[in-house]
Every structure is written in structure tokens, then in C-alpha cells.
Design a protein around this nucleic acid. Structure first.
Lengths: 197, 197
DNA sequence: ACCTGAACACCGTTCAAGT
DNA sequence: ACCTGAACACCGTTCAAGT
């Protein structure tokens, strides 16, 4: 063994993240561990630590991949340049909720796994969340007096939809499934947009 | 040793929860473990398992205590029978945000630690969250055509404020501290209530 | 340089043994 | 009946040893 060099460093990273996401999606975070990932990609734990700093580092890459697939889902489902902002925002919320339901375990990891190190989140990671907010913001800019106000409303609406989704899908609102959650976010967006004018 | 009977079963439960909450508040969830709690209350791990089913059970009692102190904070700070619903709701949000900031570690455990067993949450635990929603609902009932509509708006507003608080205090909204978070929830509540009329 | 595999420290949990 | 403490299984992480 040793010095196999079957895969490049980047390939190993990619394989590890794919494997870890597969395990989380199928069996939840509690069934994820380093030995399991290593076995799954045909290496030993030591190799994982040659490629990732630690499990937190691996988890950040897992969440980055989830953010990418969320962004892709939104880009695919949400029509570009919808002149009706309220309709577009409802569509974003609907896609977000469906994504959360369909990728429940991965989405929960993204939501719950807090990297305590708030400030040393790398720029490439921050950008993945920033572009999600920009997607919401583009529909609010034409309706607001300043870009600062549009940014504020984008934060408020995104975080609110997120909160309803978190509590709703986790059974804290006495409702079950994605449909009633979406109904609540629709009402939120309608009332907020009415109040904005 | 053995057969000390220094404390009743209920006293042991209480002591364990108090100790665990102290550890979480001071050093975070990652520094909490069964041996530490046991040592802190002057017993061994076996005793903890004589009183709690497992760590999940203990965690539920920890979160129950946090919900109680949150309710107490709200009861203390929010004026009863405020005729101005928007003002009262803003006050609830403000107190909630301050509680989350001041009890950050405990509040994060309450928020992030998901008991996967959704349906076997005991009734006495469910009631602790239900009464929080009722507190919000009381201000919405006079403004809504049906109690069902008031209930819906209570869920929407509570979950939205929660979402803004979660993302805001965890540094996901490019803002720092409780004040700007509260500013966002104020705008949310204002616009939502305007839209409601 | 890359990879192994054994070791270390530390967990949650169990349970035979004591009083 | 209550409590101990040692044991078990399992985890993240490290690192000397191999090629």
C-alpha cells in the first residue's frame, strides 16, 4: 500500500463529499463518521485528514455542495425577469420549501450544523449564501426607494420564509408536509408586499 | 457507597438539569457530557441513567427549562392587554431576541437540537411551545375574522421572527448584535400588520 | 509525497457487584 | 432499591512506519 496515487487531491475531496452527502441523505447525520466515508471511497481515515483539516472542514464542503444544489434548483424553477415581484417571491419560497423537503437531511445539516468560527468562513463560502440573497433582492429593488431598503427586505423575507420552513417541516407548527408550509409563506409574502407599498 | 439516598429521584433530575444548563451556558454544548454532569452533582454516570432514559431524554428536560425561562421573560416584559397589537407584537419580538442573545448557547441548543422522534414528544412538553403561540395569538384575534386566521398569523409571525433571529444572531445576515435584528423584525411586523388590514 | 493501520483520548451506555 | 465503577463499543484525530 501507500503511494497509490489513484486519485488526485481534488478527486479525493470530491469523492469524500459525494460519499458523505449520500450517507447523510440516506441515513442522517448521526450515521456519518470518518471511518465510514473512508471505507466508502476505498481509503483509510488517515487519507481523509490528508485532504481535510478535520470534520468541521469536511462539513463545510458538504454544506457548500448543498448550497450549490439549492441555488441550481432556484435558478431552474424561478422564471427570470418576472415583472410581478410578489409572484416571483412566492415562487422562490415554493422552490425553497420543496428543496428542503426533498433534501431534508442535507438541508437540516446546513441549517443546524453551526460552525462556531463565525469570522473565518472563507469568501468562496460566503458568496454561496450572498447570491441567494441577491436572487431575492432583484425583485425588490424596483419597488424600493434605495438599494439599502431592498437589501433589508430581502433579508427579512428570506429569513422569515426560512423560519417558517424550519419550524413547519420539523413539526413545530402543527402542520405536516410542504403544502401547508407553502401556504403560510404565501400569506407572509402577500401581507408583507402589501404593507411595503 | 450505594444506597446513599441523599436525594430523591426528583431532586436528582432537577440537579442534573441545572448542572447541564450551567455547563451549556458557560461552555457550550460541545463541552457537555454525562460524566461531567455526574461529577458536578456528586454522583456517577450510572445514576444519571437511573433517572433519565438517555441523553436525548435529558436534553428534552434541558430544553423544557429553557422554554420555561423564555416564557417567564416574555410574561415579565410584555405588557398585558395592550390595545395596540403591532406595538405588543414588536415588544414580544424584542424580548425574544434579547432572550436569545443573553442565553445564546441554551437558545441554540433549543433551536438546533432536533429530537428526531417527532411524534413521541410528550404533551407536557408540547404545551410549553403552545402557550408561546397563544401569547402571540391573543393580539391577533381581535383583528382577524376567525380564530383560524388569527392562529395562522400567529404561526407566521412567530416563525418569521424566529427565522430572522436565528440567521441574524448567527451572523448569516451581515449584521451583528441584537439591535439590528430587532430592527428587521420591527419592519417585518409593521409591514405584515399593514398588509393584514 | 502519499497512504496505512494501530494507537490515543474520549464518548454514551450497560450491568454485575456492592450496600 | 439505589449507586458504583469497570467494561464495551464507538468515535475523531494523530503519527510512526511503510512504499
Amino acid at each position: 500500500m501507500a503511494r497509490r496515487k489513484d486519485h488526485t487531491r481534488e478527486e479525493l475531496k470530491e469523492m469524500s463529499v459525494v460519499s458523505a452527502r449520500k450517507i447523510i441523505a440516506a441515513q442522517g447525520l448521526s450515521n456519518l463518521n470518518m471511518r465510514r466515508i473512508a471505507g466508502d471511497i476505498g481509503y483509510t481515515v488517515g487519507t481523509l485528514y490528508n485532504v481535510f483539516e478535520d470534520m468541521d472542514d469536511l462539513m463545510m464542503h458538504i454544506n457548500a455542495a448543498t448550497l450549490d444544489s439549492l441555488y441550481a434548483a432556484l435558478e431552474k424553477d424561478v422564471p427570470q425577469n418576472d415583472k410581478n415581484a410578489t409572484r416571483a417571491l412566492k415562487r422562490i419560497a415554493k422552490t425553497y420549501i420543496r428543496f428542503a423537503e426533498e433534501n431534508f437531511n442535507l438541508w437540516n445539516v446546513l441549517t443546524n450544523y453551526e460552525q462556531m468560527t463565525e469570522e473565518d468562513r472563507p469568501d468562496w463560502y460566503m458568496e454561496k449564501t450572498a447570491r441567494l440573497f441577491r436572487m431575492v433582492e432583484q425583485y425588490l429593488t424596483p419597488l424600493c426607494k434605495s438599494s439599502a431598503k431592498a437589501e433589508r427586505s430581502a433579508k427579512i423575507l428570506w429569513a422569515s420564509v426560512h423560519g417558517i420552513c424550519v419550524l413547519g417541516l420539523n413539526g413545530r407548527l402543527d402542520i405536516a408536509g410542504a403544502a401547508p408550509v407553502q401556504s403560510l409563506t404565501d400569506t407572509l409574502i402577500e401581507n408583507y408586499m402589501k404593507g411595503l407599498k
